[in-house]
Amino acid sequence: MTKKYPGTYLKRDEMYSLPGLVRYKPTAKYSFSAGIAQTKFLEGLKKGKIIGVKCPSCGRVYVPPRAFCEYCHVPMNEYVELPGTGEIHTAVISYISTFRQRMDKPEIVGVVKLDAPGYTKESYEFAGLFHRFCGITEEDVISGKAIGMRVKPRWKPENERTGSVTDIECFEPVES
């Protein structure tokens, strides 16, 4: 392992001053279909409801809903309303944005394990959502007090809801 390894390192400004450097700005736009099951879910959010779907074979209730059970591989179309309450599975404090810029105010985000039939307390899978948390402090996250905390959705005012996951402002502690 004494041979020379190929590769020519460039400093940032060396790269920008290279002859023949090509810079290109992509402009692609997309339109994503929510599909049938997710559309049900999004319509539910607009009405302030958390909608799940039940597998006729294993009985798991899925949130977010999908059109088929990924474990039994059977179609699912029995939609059920859930209370929306649950517990925090994990929570973190973000100081950076999508593009890694520092944020003025840190944001607490994580996973909510929702109360839903079809699972035991020990099961590896659960119904849940990825979302923001409010009403809990950074200290709660760091000390671990936040994990397992009971939470419920805080909804946006009805006239501001658009059928988006952001119709839920955040999940907040049940007792507040």
Partner: peptide, 14 residues
């Protein structure tokens, strides 16, 4: 069915 807009997130390729 609800449709959502999206865009390419990379500002530039070099």
């Amino acid at each position: 069915v609800i449709f959502y807009p999206g865009r390419q997130e990379t500002e530039e390729y070099v």
